[in-house]
């Protein structure tokens, strides 16, 4: 898969996981991994990017005597998912067009 495309997909996958409720690094990887390849080193820049763009918020909370960072989706993040769904619909039309050899 194209690296840029995968990057965009991963961003939305992480946001989709956070739609269920706030989550943390380890759990996000566990939830996303069955659908798309993701590693620890891949998730770090995604979370940082989403946080700096305002798509997610983060706060640290103590767990088992250590700090754990929890992420929650924002309104902006929800909007991003909706935009992605619209993009996919457009892709589907383009896909059909390509599949039919340019004859629709």
């Amino acid at each position: 898969m194209d690296a840029q495309l995968k990057k965009g997909l991963l961003d939305v996958c992480v946001l989709a996981v956070l739609r269920r409720g706030e989550s943390y690094g380890y759990k996000i990887i566990a939830d996303v991994a069955p659908y798309i390849e993701i590693s620890e080193s891949t998730l770090y820049p995604i979370l940082k990017r989403l946080e700096s763009s305002g798509a997610v918020t983060a706060h640290s909370r103590e767990f088992n005597g250590r700090l754990r960072k929890y992420y929650a989706i924002t309104e902006k993040g929800q909007q991003r998912i909706l935009e992605f769904i619209e993009d996919v619909k457009e892709f589907e039309r383009i896909y059909e067009f390509i599949l039919q050899g340019g004859n629709l």
């Binding site: 943390y24 690094g25 380890y26 590693s39 620890e40 960072k69």
Partner: peptide, 26 residues
């Protein structure tokens, strides 16, 4: 560093061995 320390702690809690975690971190 905090990000990887947190993942390390969570993986240990999940029963993954230290050597396996380090291998997964690459």
């Amino acid at each position: 560093l905090g990000y990887y320390a947190e993942l390390y702690g969570d993986k240990l809690d999940a029963g993954t061995s230290e050597s396996e975690i380090v291998r997964e971190f690459g």
